[in-house]
Simulated assay, not measured.
Amino acid sequence: MSVDENDAIEAFERLGLTSYEAKVFIALQRLGSGTARDVARIADVPRSQVYSVAERLENRGLLDVQQASPIRYRPVSLEKAQRTLEDRFDRECERALTYVEQVRNESTGEETQEDIWTVRGRERVDDRVVNLLSSADERIVFGTRLSELVVDPIERCLEEQANEGTAVVVMSQNDSVRNRLGSIEGVCTDAPPSHHEGDRRSGRIVIVDDDGVLLSVIDDDGGETAIWSSGSRFASVLIQLIEVSTQTPE
Rank of each mutant, 00 (worst) to 15 (best):
S2F: 12
S2M: 01
V3H: 08
V3Y: 15
N6F: 07
D7M: 03
D7G: 11
R14T: 09
G16Y: 08
S19V: 13
S19F: 12
Y20R: 08
K23E: 01
L28T: 02
R30F: 06
A36Q: 11
R37W: 01
A40S: 15
A43N: 12
P46S: 06
Q49G: 12
Y51R: 14
A54L: 06
E55N: 03
L63F: 10
D64F: 07
Q67E: 13
P70V: 10
P75W: 04
S77Q: 12
S77Y: 04
L78A: 11
L78V: 06
K80C: 05
R95P: 02
R95C: 01
R95H: 05
R95D: 15
E101V: 11
E101N: 15
S107I: 09
E111G: 07
E111Q: 11
Q113I: 15
W117K: 09
T118G: 03
V119D: 13
R120D: 05
D127T: 03
V129A: 07
N131W: 07
E138L: 05
V141K: 08
G143L: 03
V150Q: 01
V150D: 00
V150A: 01
D152H: 11
C157E: 15
L158S: 00
E159F: 08
E160N: 13
Q161R: 15
G165N: 01
G165T: 00
G165K: 00
V168W: 00
M171N: 05
S176I: 00
R180D: 10
L181K: 03
S183K: 04
S183T: 03
I184M: 06
I184T: 05
A191C: 02
P193I: 02
H195V: 05
H195Q: 12
G198T: 04
S202M: 13
S202W: 14
R204G: 00
V208M: 12
D209G: 08
D210F: 12
V213F: 14
V213T: 04
L214G: 10
I218G: 13
D219R: 07
T225K: 14
S229C: 06
G231W: 04
F234K: 04
L241Q: 11
I242E: 14
E243I: 00
S245K: 06
T246G: 11
T248R: 14
E250T: 04
